[in-house]
Simulated scan of single mutants.
Amino acid sequence: MNVPGRALWLFFICFVFSISSCGIYTFNDVSIPDNVKTIRIGFIENKARYINPSLSAQLTDAFVKKVASQTKLTRIDDLNADYVVNAVINHYDVTTSGVSSTSQASLNRLTVGVHLTLIDNTLKDQKEYDVSSTFDFNANVSLAQAESTLMPQILKDIPDAMFNKIFSNW
């Protein structure tokens, strides 16, 4: 291998190593003021038209774990915490997103939306955010069948979106 080829190969290896070692989320991506030390995360209520009975508890747990793993905030159950996060599942809707050549639905789309309220007790401020994600599934399966395969992705994408809205200003 010639010298320019080796240099290019070495650059590529260093680049791959640097992006793989930093991960998607680092403490550098999180913008939390130094005076914010505690957080209260309320139970995420499900007020969507269709209620998946296990989604509230699973989503709350996934978001709590995300915050715990990506920040140094201490979780407390006190409304006087530095940050208080409340959330409501306000969308859980299925629509047709693909049609076959026989004019029948071939693909359905589940949209999951969450409305967030962040109370910053250090600044006496309140902000509201909306996040949502879509999940496609085959129209030949029922929603209950689709939920069993989509749930791991829902429990990853929605807490990620919530986290990014609150802490990363994405």
Rank of each mutant, 00 (worst) to 15 (best):
T60C: 00
N80Q: 15
G5A: 15
D77Q: 00
P53Q: 07
N164E: 12
V84N: 01
I89K: 02
F137T: 07
A48G: 05
D160Y: 11
N35G: 10
L116F: 06
K124E: 07
R40V: 00
I24S: 13
A146G: 05
S101A: 14
L10V: 14
N138A: 13
I19A: 04
N86Q: 09
F63V: 05
D34H: 15
D77S: 00
T134E: 09
F17D: 02
H91W: 02
Q58H: 07
D157E: 10
D61R: 12
F11M: 14
L10S: 10
F15P: 03
H91M: 08
V114M: 07
Q153H: 10
D93H: 04
L55W: 03
N164W: 08
D82K: 15
E128N: 10
D78F: 00
N28M: 12
G98Y: 09
S142M: 11
F163I: 02
D125Y: 05
F135I: 06
S101H: 03
N35L: 04
D78R: 00
L107Y: 09
W9G: 06
V3P: 04
L150E: 01
S54F: 03
P159G: 06
N46P: 01
A139G: 13
A68R: 13
Q58P: 03
K127T: 06
M1P: 09
N35K: 15
S69K: 15
V88Q: 10
Y92F: 15
L110M: 05
T149W: 05
G113T: 11
T96F: 05
A81R: 00
K165G: 04
Q153I: 07
T74Y: 03
Y83D: 07
S101V: 13
Y83R: 09
S101T: 14
S133Q: 08
T71S: 06
K156I: 07
Y50G: 04
T71N: 09
N108Y: 15
I166F: 05
W170A: 12
Y92G: 03
R6F: 14
L116R: 02
V112K: 05
I166P: 08
D136A: 11
L123R: 15
I89A: 07
E147R: 00
L116D: 01
D61M: 09
S54Y: 06
I13K: 08
Q145F: 03
T71D: 06
C22N: 10
T96R: 12
I166T: 10
C22S: 04
N121D: 03
F27M: 14
V99W: 03
F167R: 12
A87I: 04
D136S: 08
F43K: 13
N169F: 12
D160A: 07
A57C: 01
G23S: 08
Q104E: 14
D160S: 10
V99N: 09
E45W: 10
L8Q: 08
Q104F: 10
K124A: 11
S31G: 06
F163H: 00
G42N: 14
Y129K: 03
H91R: 12
P33D: 14
F12K: 13
E147W: 02
S106N: 14
I41E: 02
